[in-house]
């Protein structure tokens, strides 16, 4: 009977729809975390704080006036809410980043974690603005007048995945740009990066704000699926899940974040599905984090760099050659043939 329940859940479209929705959202956030932490070397342990800022901004400005007992609800349309969420999160990232990015890597990790917790406490305590621990029990969603309930879920899933795809395109562009190389250079060796004219502190701040703006844009998608906002949504668990997925999939690779999120969420949601008799419920709840830990240990034992690796993304020149690179290489090899210099070889290698 328990098995039957699990199997029927597996067959239900709601289960899969929720899972894919969650994968889309986590994938977007984890890819952004990868830009910041994987490439930029900024170990942000408070990315959920940015998500919280975006989420609250979106909800507060889009709530219908008078529906909740709060001081400010201008009732803006959804698109304005998204823009407001991105702008506010960007500004907050700037204000947090300004002092936090001066700190060394380990301290940055602690400071960002602390800021995320401060934001959550503010959400709990600024009752007049955030509705306290109760939060908001409804969230404005787009297309609500065009589709009925089930169809709307499908449409929002498609929108979420489109957004995740957009984030992927962004990280792909970054990985091939001078900006992306500067990020990895600064992470690898700050003195040398400086000696090449990279303004390291400014680059860090720009990146932190870029990630903030983008996370602010992802926040509404998360809310459309959740359909409520409360401080409990923004507990550190979210950040830990994104980090675990990133490490699992391969930190600093390009697609690792997506793969890691897919594997991790599929795994945890399936573990959740296993139905157990009531007397084992406690054990089941405890097994959940244990199972994630085990998965992580197994992957890191056999593939220390994660399922995918940075070298896989950036390894050989051929893999990142664009059409114009090709033309450049052709010109250079022609020059090489014309040059009269003898074979210089590598004989200086001891």
């Amino acid at each position: 009977m328990n098995t039957l329940a699990a199997i029927s859940a597996l067959g239900s479209p709601t289960f899969w729809m929720s899972l894919f929705m969650l994968i889309g959202i986590y994938a977007a956030v984890t890819m952004l975390l990868n830009v910041e932490a994987g490439w930029g070397g900024m170990w942000d342990l408070g990315i959920v704080g940015l998500l919280a800022i975006g989420s609250y901004t979106y909800t507060i400005v889009t709530n219908p006036p008078g529906e909740f007992d709060v001081v400010y609800s201008p009732g803006w349309p959804v698109w304005a809410g998204i823009l407001a969420a991105m702008a506010t999160t960007g500004i907050v990232a700037f204000l947090v980043g300004l002092p936090a990015l001066r700190a060394r890597r380990e301290y940055f990790l602690i400071i960002t974690f602390a800021f995320a917790e401060v934001f959550r406490q503010l959400a709990i305590n600024l009752r007049d603005v955030t509705h306290g621990t109760v939060g908001f029990s409804s969230v404005a969603r787009p297309f609500e007048s065009f589709f009925e309930k089930d169809a709307l879920r499908g449409v929002l899933l498609a929108v979420t995945w489109a957004a995740a795809l957009l984030v992927y395109a962004l990280t792909r562009r970054i990985s091939r740009s001078g900006y992306g190389r500067a990020l990895r250079a600064m992470r690898d060796n700050e003195p040398v990066a400086l000696s090449l004219g990279i303004r390291v502190s400014w680059l860090r701040l720009q990146t932190f704000v870029l990630v903030g703006v983008a996370v602010g844009g992802v926040a509404p998608l998360y809310l459309w699926w959740l359909r409520y906002v409360a401080p409990s949504v923004f507990e550190p668990q979210f950040t830990f899940t994104a980090w675990t997925a990133l490490v699992l999939g391969g930190i600093a690779s390009r697609s690792g974040a997506v793969l890691g999120v897919g594997v991790l969420l599929l795994f945890t949601e399936l573990v959740e599905l296993i139905d157990v008799p009531p007397e084992f419920r406690n054990v089941h709840v405890a097994v959940h984090p244990l199972a994630i830990g085990l998965l992580l240990v197994l992957v890191l034992r056999f593939r220390p760099e994660g399922l995918l690796s940075e070298r896989g993304t950036f390894g050989a020149r051929a893999r990142q050659t664009t059409a114009l690179d090709g033309a450049g290489a052709a010109v250079a090899s022609r020059l090489r043939r014309l040059s009269l210099r003898g074979d210089s070889g590598n004989e200086e290698a001891p």
Partner: peptide, 19 residues
């Protein structure tokens, strides 16, 4: 830059670095 290939590390200088 230990994670880069020689060719990649050559592409850092001279590129536009800002976002």
């Amino acid at each position: 830059f230990p994670t880069m290939t020689l060719w990649e590390s050559m592409q850092v200088a001279g590129a536009s670095h800002a976002v």
